[in-house]
Every structure is written in C-alpha cells, then in structure tokens.
Design a binder for these strands. Structure first.
Lengths: 353, 353
DNA sequence: GTATCGAATGGGAACGTTCCCATCGTAGGC
DNA sequence: GCCTACGATGGGAACGTTCCCATTCGATAC
C-alpha cells in the first residue's frame, strides 16, 4: 500500500474488483454494512493491490465529510498552547480525525488568512486559541453551523462553546496559597488584558478578591517585551517595604518567565519575596529554589475541546453554548516559602517526565 | 469579503462580471497579464461583491498548484522543533505558501498516516523532521518528484536535501570551550542515536575528537524517561573522581533538561562540575548559575528549508541533493566556569526576548 | 485584398468523489 | 403463482476548478 504519486482512483479499484464505483464509494464512506461480504472482500483486495486511498479533495468537493478539524493558535511558541494542542491532537486521533493547525503569530491579518485557509478545506470543526479581533468572521462561521470551540478565550458577540481554565478558581487558589504562606502584599503581573478574555478574568478576580483574603493587592499590566516597565514596576512594588511580606503572582507562563528574569537580574532571592505563576513549565522546578505554579490540565482541556466539537456536530440543533472550566493543580515549591517557615519542597519533583 | 458558508463559485463571479469562467480562472491562476485591464476590473469587482474565494479542493482535484507545504514533526513538544517550525512558517508566509503541520508523536504509524494525509492534499513540498522509519514511503515520494527537505536528520536511502546544524562543528566548539575552561573529562549524554542521524553524528564526532582535545570522554546513551539510568550513569561518571575536572555535554535540549534535573536532585553545583548543552532554551539562563549552550539558528534553518523546497520546485531536473549546515552560537554561562576561574556571566543575558 | 498571426476570450471536457435514482433479484404475503 | 417490498448493486449527474482547444478580431505582411 504505497503512498504513490498517481494514486489509484475509485474507478480503477471498481474495475479491478469487478464492481461498480458506487459500491467502492460506499465501502469507504462508512456504509460497509450495506455491502455483501463477498463484495467487501473483493473491494479490499483490489484496493490493497492498487494501493488505493480515497482522495479527500474530490471528496471535499462533493461535500462529503472531511474528517478534518482546524485549530487556530495565536502563538505557537507559547508552551501552554503547544501543550493544549497536543491534547487536542491526541483526542482527534482517538476519534479518527485529523488536525490542521495554523499559527497566527498574534497577527490579525494572518489570523484571517488562516481562517479562510481552514474553512476552504471544509473543516468539520474549529478550535480557536487566538486573539480573535476578527470576531465577525468567526461569528459568521459559527452562525453558518460550523462547530466552534473557544479555547482559553471568550469572544464578545460569539456564543460558542468555551473550554479553559477556571480562572476564578485559579486566582482564589493562588490567593489562598499566598495567604497561607504568610504573604500580605501581592502584585499581579499580567499581559495587557484587552486582547484576551482569560487575562481579563484573572485580573478582575484578583482585583475583586485580594482584599477579602486580607491581602494588599496591586496590578501591573504590560507587554512582554517591556523589560524596562517590568523592572520599574517590580521596583516600585518591592521597594515599598512596609515590612509586610510581598509576593508576585504571574498571570501566565510567559509572564512568569519575564518576571523570573527580572528578579534574577535584581538578584532578589525567591521565597522571602514570593513568586507564583499560572501555568506549569519545564523549568519552574529547576529555578532555585523552585517556583510555585498552578498547573493547567492541558491534555484534559484539549480533549474537552474536541469533545465539544463532536457534541456540536452530533446535535444538529444548536443548543445554548456550554462553558467548560477546569480546575488547576497547585504545585507548591519554595518560591512561596518564606524563611522561617518549614521547607515546602526542596527535593525536585517529577511532575513532568 | 466574508468567509461565507456557501462561497460563491467561479461561475457566479463570471456571470456577475459578464465574462466567462475561463477568464475568472485565469485571473486567479496568476495569468492576469493575459487579461485586458477592463476585464480584470470587472472580475475583481464581481469577486469582491460576491466574496469569492477560489476553492482549493476543486483546484487540487484538477491538479493545479495547491500553495501548500507540508511539515512532519516528530515531537511538537520539543521546543527546538517548534522554533524551527516557526521559522519555516515565516518563510512560507513570505513566499505566499501555507503550511500544514502534522505531529507524529514519534509514532511510525502516525507518521505514515500523516504522510498520506499531507500527500493527499497535494502539497507542493514536504519538510520532514521525524524519525522516518518509513523511509521507503518518503523515498518513493521523493522519487515521484515531490520536493523533500530533511530537517536535522539524514535518512539512509534517501537522497534529499538536508538542512540542519553543523553537528561536527558544534561538537568541536563544545569540546574547544570545555577544554578552554579547564575540564579534562567529559560525559556526552544523548538520546539513543539509532533513530536520528543528528544524534549519531554528534556522538560520532564526540567519540572521534575528544581525545585530540586532550579530553577523556565517555558516552551515555539512554531514553529520556530513564531517570534511573541517568542517575546511575551520572553517578558512575562523577564518582570516578580522579581529581580531573569533569563536565557533562548534553546532546540536545531535552537531554539538558533531564540532566539538569538529575544534577539538582543530587545537589551537585554547576560550574565545578561543568554542564553544557546543545540547543538554547528559555530557562538555560535562569537555572543557577546559568547553563552554557550552543544555540541553533532556528529561524535561519527554517528559512533555509523552505528555500531548498522552492529551489527544487523551480528546477525541474533533480540535481544532486544539497546539504546545508548551520553553525551554532556559543552562549557561555557560568555552568562551564570552574571556581577559581573568572566569572563568565553571572549577570543575566538578554538572548531571548 | 487576402493570408497570417497573436492577443483576448469562451466552450467544454476532464479531475475523483458522492449521492440520487434506477434496476434487478428474491422472499414473503395473499 | 402473482404482487409487493426490500436488499444489493450500478449508472450518471453533479461538485468547482483548470486547461486544451476553438473562436473572434484587429493588425501586420505580402
């Protein structure tokens, strides 16, 4: 069964098997039950012999199912996105679907272009983890009946299924943990929330709830590349030493990276100054003395996204959109362990292989 | 120009513009010069009005160019692969090509399946960064005239273009650096080289050249998950303390991660025991005291891969395969700085934004 | 003035499927 | 033993392109 250059056509298989092309088509379109055993056998044999593979182009042209799921990713270099993508992919595989991933590099133009690309290939569902400035295009697609799942984002004006972290829960868990560890002041660092709803949600929850946890809270919002602003913001926060133990909470993995760099540059030891991040990354355990994180169940999130897609496909009638929120796992490490408190976790863990 | 559900067909545009479908087809097939100005104008207007987008399915059916490049990635979670993929993608974009990425998860079955998927979509070129057990399938494709580029791998029996690191050069640079820093014994840790030629190349070069650098050399080859084996191997190497300064050289980024974990678990401070890795990663600067790496020019590699593809497409006659090898950049940090030597780099660098 | 040519355009047959509809048995109901 | 019905199968028209081959028309060459 070679992957040949000029693949055999359904007609050739039919001839070779001495049956009609319709029958061969039926065999490959999941209507095998309708075929007699002998015919099925002749078809497989002929197909095997000729190395036949259905041509998805022709199939897609006629309107048949493509078996293709599309995914729009805002930033392929974001480990969280990649982890979820991996989950999505596994789930697709289990369902016999193929995944076509497009990276938008946070560029609305590219996003639009990739969207057209995907739709032109007659995808059966779309998973979106991108900025979505062009919400209108997405909305239209959803309106046209394309199953749509928003990953880690909401988009105003779009009533699509959503899958992602339980942001409120995550922030509460972080605040709980920081409180327990004896911190009194917390700086929440986030990328500009305007473009992503999850950032907004986390920030809003932080602002709403830090006080009730007995914490003084501040928010620092800036672009990832703005190291000067970050330095300045951290200084401003940390230098206000009213004696209350201070911690920094990072809104996502990328922020954790930037903040860790900034703290190291200022040679601020972690622990007395607390550091905690949303998103677990390879290196969080390695940076002395280990960085406390809230790990997202990325595989489960990916799986859930695909499940939603299937569900949508199944029910022809569009039900009210469903939101699925996952609870993170707290991975406590010594970056949120003030000296004087007992060591939390100085032996390396094995959270990731 | 909406991404509509029932896109306009070329025929509708033709009717609307009052021209023939052939003319519209020509307009979109890069034969605009052949059309009169007035006709061109009428076509764009009609297309605009109807939101026309050529249907790649139909186009692909008839055999026209797909504008699609395929990429097979062995492990989407490998940051190096992702970095190169990003380079490939940027290059494709510049060329007006779209990229379709498939992850094989190091699974030969999946690899084969994805290969069929890609070829069935009539890709114009294929970039492979995967194990390639099914070299036969690849070879056949290449033989059939599909432009093929092997990324960071050679495949026996396949005369395809290759793009990747200059492994010999990289190893030599590493050995030079380690020698200069005063290490006398070096352990080269690698994943099993059987499945990837670049691993083989690096290992071979290490074995061939360590002696001429005045270094005692050993090789440790194991699966990434084999932490016990790694612990044992590291112990064996480090406990043979004949007083000669020892260093560990990691064959790729994943190995660097595993080794760093193992060393931290054993609480071995870096520097006196040297540590150096091929592949630069986000966190290498962050792990105390900073890990020396050889950074691969991933964007350039990706770009080169696409360039090779285009070149192949252009020349109808298949020339002898060309191999493009890139020199890495040494990023010296304190993990290869023995105490007593001057500090190399204790201030954080800004190699990556 | 006619023949030739090339540039601009159009008609229709593919490409490989799916799917509607027709055909053909054959078994069961009367 | 005839009519019905149903199960198994086949023929052919679409799907939206591209591309080969006309066709038209003015201009240039004889």
């Amino acid at each position: 069964m070679p992957v040949t250059s000029r693949p055999a056509t359904i007609l050739e298989v039919a001839r070779d098997a001495g049956v009609s092309k319709t029958s061969v088509s039926r065999y490959y379109s999941g209507e095998r039950e309708r075929l007699s055993a002998s015919m099925q056998q002749r078809i497989v044999q002929a197909a095997e012999r000729l190395g036949y593979q259905p041509n998805p182009m022709a199939r897609g042209l006629k309107g048949g199912p493509s078996g293709l799921v599309g995914m729009l990713v805002a930033d392929i270099r974001n480990p969280f996105s990649v982890a979820v993508m991996h989950g999505v992919e596994q789930a697709c595989r289990r369902q016999g679907l193929s995944l076509m991933v497009c990276n938008t590099d946070n560029d609305p133009t590219l996003e639009h272009r990739n969207l057209s690309l995907l739709t032109s290939y007659r995808i059966e569902g779309l998973i979106v983890n991108a900025a979505g400035r062009h919400g209108d295009a997405l909305a239209e697609l959803a309106g046209d009946g394309l199953p749509l799942v928003l990953l880690d984002r909401s988009l105003e004006g779009i009533d699509a299924d959503e899958v992602g972290l339980d942001n409120d829960r995550a922030i509460d868990m972080a605040l709980d943990h920081l409180t327990e560890q004896g911190y009194r002041r917390v700086l929440f660092v986030t990328e500009p929330p305007a473009r992503a709803s999850s950032r907004q949600a986390r920030m809003a929850r932080f602002e709403a709830n830090h006080a009730s946890h007995g914490l003084e809270g501040e928010v620092l919002s800036l672009e990832l590349g703005d190291t000067a602003g970050l330095d300045h913001g951290l200084s401003a926060f940390l230098d206000t030493s009213d004696g209350h133990p201070a911690a920094i909470l990072c809104g996502n993995g990328q922020v954790t990276l930037a903040v860790t760099r900034a703290l190291q540059a200022r040679r601020i030891p972690l622990g007395d100054t607390g550091l905690m991040g949303i998103d677990e990354l390879d290196w969080c355990q390695l940076v002395t003395p280990g960085i406390t994180t809230l790990a997202q169940p990325t595989d489960a999130i990916g799986q859930a996204a695909v499940d939603r897609l299937r569900a949508r496909q199944a029910e022809r009638a569009t039900p009210e959109p469903r939101h699925e929120r996952f609870t993170p796992t707290l991975i406590p490490r010594a970056s949120t362990c003030r000296s004087g408190t007992e060591d939390l976790d100085t032996t390396p863990d094995e959270t990731r292989p």
